[in-house]
Write a protein that binds this DNA or RNA. Structure first.
Length: 113
DNA sequence: CTTCTGACTGAAA
DNA sequence: GTTTCAGCCAGAA
């Protein structure tokens, strides 16, 4: 990239998250890696928290950790909203964990190319 | 300015 | 299989 990247990371995260297909899920590390910051997965999680203030709605509920756990469910208005939202898209969730996570996993670096 | 925390991950023990 | 450690970036105190 030409010049210096400033706060563009957050915007990039939002765009990728918005590109996640309905009924699919992704991980912080996958998004971070796609953006060229494989080890900045935490910043992606930060972006999600900040995503609440975004004008455009960001499907943050489709972003989980590597294990497929709904790590951010406590940040939702209700701890069950994230799970219900995933189930509404046909994604089975059990005990705060997505079942068959690998099956529903959507990697921007592979799918989006 | 320094220090700490955080919706994470990968490697090491 | 689990647990522990370190790294990475951005923002708040």
């Amino acid at each position: 990239m030409a010049g210096k990247d400033h706060g563009r990371f957050f915007e990039n995260v939002y765009e990728v998250v918005k590109l996640i297909p309905h009924g699919r899920v992704s991980s912080y590390g996958a998004i971070a890696r796609y953006l060229g910051a494989a080890r900045s997965a935490r910043v992606v999680g930060w972006a999600m928290q900040n995503a609440h203030t975004m004008i455009d709605q960001v499907p943050a509920h489709r972003v989980l950790n590597r294990q497929g756990l709904l790590t951010g469910r406590h940040h939702y208005p209700t701890p069950t909203e994230m799970q219900e939202r995933l189930e509404a898209e046909g994604i089975p969730v059990k005990d705060g964990q997505v079942q068959q996570f690998d099956k529903y996993f959507w990697d921007p670096a592979l799918e989006l190319l």
